[in-house]
């Protein structure tokens, strides 16, 4: 019999930073088009610095599949010629990569000072109420995901919501319902876009 008390094997009890493994996912390879895009992008960096293209490679994978699975990360690792752990290291740091499925439209509501001063919290509440989801969740139709983000760099157009790669500026809480209905009906065409971009 051992003198030591029986040790419970429960990682949560003695390791706070329990590592969550990404979804393994099915087979993943770039489409021919994405492969060509990656091959062109990697030329921008010195030949021995392929790793610089990692963010671009991840964006391509994410656009192709909607979110990043372990298979996708392994594929990116193969392209970059680094380990999958290196890729996971990068993915887990940056906020614009998703490791879980997200809706067609990811509503990123800015919550930092300038937007908050003009009612960003009310916008989040209104979206949350309209779609019946909490921050971080995807609605039942799989169309919308609500996320709160930090400063988007459009403080003069507060409150700002970034939807995928597009901006919706000066979204008042009372307009939220209408806005969501418009996006459902018209897709990307419903966004105001960036005011500077639009003036062209």
């Amino acid at each position: 019999m051992s003198f030591h008390p029986k040790m419970e094997y429960a990682p949560a009890r003695f390791h706070k930073s329990a590592r969550t493994l990404p979804d393994p996912g099915g087979d993943f390879t770039y489409t021919a088009e994405n492969q060509a895009k990656f091959d062109a992008n990697v030329q921008r960096y010195p030949p021995d610095q392929r790793k610089s293209a990692i963010l671009y490679a991840l964006y391509l994978a994410q656009r192709q599949q909607g979110f990043l699975t372990r298979a996708a990360m392994a594929h990116v690792a193969g392209q970059i010629r680094c380990t999958t752990a290196d890729v996971e290291d990068v993915v887990s740091y940056y906020t614009m990569f998703y490791t879980k499925p997200v809706g067609t439209y990811v509503l990123n509501v800015c919550r930092t000072l300038s937007c908050a001063l003009l009612g960003a919290e009310r916008v989040t509440e209104a979206i949350s109420e309209k779609l019946g989801i909490k921050v971080g969740e995807t609605d039942a139709s799989g169309m919308f995901t609500l996320i709160e983000v930090e400063c988007l760099g459009a403080c003069d157009r507060a409150p700002v919501v970034m939807v995928n790669d597009d901006w919706e500026e000066r979204l008042a809480p009372e307009q939220v319902g209408e806005f969501i209905d418009h996006v459902r009906a018209k897709g990307r065409a419903a966004f105001t876009g960036c005011h500077l971009h639009k003036e062209k």
């Binding site: 610095q49 790793k51 610089s52 293209a53 990692i54 963010l55 991840l58 964006y59 970059i80 290291d89 990068v90 740091y93 940056y94 906020t95 614009m96 990569f97 983000v149 930090e150 400063c151």
Partner: peptide
């Protein structure tokens, strides 16, 4: 890809190197 810290010059370089 969404990191405030990348505005710091050495962090920007790290990020540009793919870290």
């Amino acid at each position: 890809a969404g990191a405030y810290e990348a505005g710091e010059e050495t962090a920007l370089i790290e990020s540009l190197e793919g870290k």
